[in-house]
């Protein structure tokens, strides 16, 4: 029998949040303590190891669109919960929470913009909205922006970040793969360029539809890109996956993407590719500067990985036995 009891005091999250986390940030890859303002200035790429952090759809649009040129379209579309889906929480509640958290109506932002003066149709996914999952709204917005690209003969750029199909819309979410692919078939037949930009992570139904259908597929460094998620594969084959498996570098090696492009070089690379595909001349300013090969330029802008972990991840390739295991 105790005479007195010491009240256990839990660490409250609120206390911790008082720390000035908005000034400094730690790179999850190399552990470097970074000045937040500098990190943001560097579009959330770690200046030390080149690790690309996820950025919001708005930030990606700012990165690609010429200043003041982005005009959002289809912002009024919202998911309708067609199945009345309830798991541990009703789908409608998940939607409301996601909209509150991101300030976005769904997991993709679409619109028209200019990119180095080239008119483009642009779609950028937001992973923070229910894992960037593709339901009816994502499918419809992608289809509509592709339609605008078709009608106005603008090239289409889609920046993907998605865990795959949105299960809460059941079969209708699966059908969005077909719907978006049909839209891209029309674009393909009309000879309008489509570039797919794959960011961390892009898996499942998005990879298996518009993610992989670019005339050119670009990937950010170190992004997880694949059809099946690594956990599902591990459970199926009952072995550990090789390091670097399903990362951008692995996809480049296996011929699934054309380039790995540093985020800081993404806009310039897209512009150069579009000018080639559209038959546009090199703009006067770039011609003088002698624009470098995009990959080489990206590599130059990207410091060498400094930690063993970062190096392993960058160089990680499955061994011969691991590759033939399946």
């Amino acid at each position: 029998m105790t005479w007195f009891r010491k009240e256990k005091q839990k660490l409250r999250a609120a206390d911790r949040r008082d720390l000035p986390t908005d000034v400094f940030d730690k790179c999850p890859e190399c552990g470097e303590i970074l000045y937040r303002a500098r990190l943001e200035q560097n579009v959330n790429v770690c200046p030390t190891c080149g690790h690309h952090r996820r950025i919001a759809a708005d930030d990606y649009i700012r990165l690609l669109a010429d200043e003041g040129s982005f005009e959002e379209t289809e912002a009024e579309l919202r998911s309708a919960d067609p199945l009345g889906f309830v798991d541990l929480k009703p789908y409608t509640q998940r939607l409301e929470a996601a909209e509150r958290a991101t300030g976005r109506g769904d997991a993709v932002v679409t619109g028209l913009a200019e990119l180095e003066g080239i008119p483009v149709a642009l779609a950028v996914m937001d992973f923070e909205f229910i894992g960037g999952s593709m339901g009816s709204v994502v499918g419809e917005k992608i289809a509509r922006v592709a339609r605008r690209a078709l009608d106005e003969r603008r090239p289409l750029i889609i920046v993907s970040a998605s865990g795959g199909a949105r299960m809460m819309e059941g079969i209708l979410s699966l059908m969005q793969m077909a719907k978006t692919s049909v839209a891209l078939a029309e674009l393909h037949e009309a000879g309008i360029p489509y570039i797919s930009v794959l960011t961390n992570p892009t898996t499942g139904g998005v990879t298996a539809s518009y993610g992989m259908l670019g005339d050119v597929n670009l990937a950010e460094p170190g992004a997880l890109i694949g059809f099946a998620g690594p956990r599902v594969i591990e459970q199926t084959i009952k072995q550990e996956l090789p390091s670097g498996f399903q990362r951008s570098e692995f996809l480049l090696e296996h011929g699934m993407v054309d380039h790995i492009v540093d985020r800081r070089m993404m806009k310039a690379t897209l512009a150069r590719l579009l000018r080639h595909m559209l038959g546009l001349p090199v703009p006067a300013a770039a011609a003088e500067g002698g624009a470098a090969e995009p990959a080489a330029a990206a590599a130059a802008a990207e410091p060498k990985p400094t930690t063993p972990r970062a190096r392993r991840r960058r160089n990680g390739r499955p061994s011969r036995e691991e590759r033939s295991a399946d």
């Binding site: 049909v182 078939a185 298996a208 992989m212 084959i237 011929g255 033939s324 399946d326």
Partner: peptide, 23 residues
């Protein structure tokens, strides 16, 4: 869902069928 399937582009193979069946 396997290693070889991902190496050889499971996502790309499915995506291409969707687009080409449409055409």
């Amino acid at each position: 869902p396997g290693i070889g399937a991902e190496e050889r582009g499971q996502g790309e193979a499915i995506a291409m069928n969707l687009r080409e069946m449409a055409r």
